[in-house]
């Protein structure tokens, strides 16, 4: 299938995604560091448990979403840079050229 790819558009989207990836990674790092503060909730074991779990979940989520933003951003960047002439080629770029 022939496609009409606008490389600049794709590259712009890719750049935005990669920037988001970095911000999500920074968020994950901050969340991981926040675990040290969470232990100061004191006597409320319930709060400590749920807060710790929420922080861990949010950290994992931020890392996973950063990974996804990286995959998608890299794929789009590759597609935009290669300016593929067929959709399958773009799929190849998305899949990562091996």
């Amino acid at each position: 299938m022939l496609i009409r790819v606008a490389p600049d558009d794709l590259t712009g989207t890719a750049t935005g995604l990669l920037a988001d990836r970095d911000r999500l990674l920074a968020a994950a790092a901050a969340l991981r560091g926040a675990h040290g503060d969470a232990v100061h909730t004191g006597d409320s074991a319930a709060l400590l448990d749920v807060l710790t779990q929420a922080l861990e979940t949010a950290t994992v989520a931020a890392l996973t979403l950063a990974e996804a933003a990286g995959v998608l951003g890299s794929g789009l960047a590759s597609a935009g840079a290669a300016y593929a002439s067929t959709d399958s080629a773009v799929a190849l770029a998305l899949g990562g050229v091996r």
């Binding site: 790819v5 989207t13 959709d87």
Partner: peptide
Amino acid sequence: LPTSWVGPAA
């Protein structure tokens, strides 16, 4: 994504 890109991969 840019609407100029269509197809299964898009």
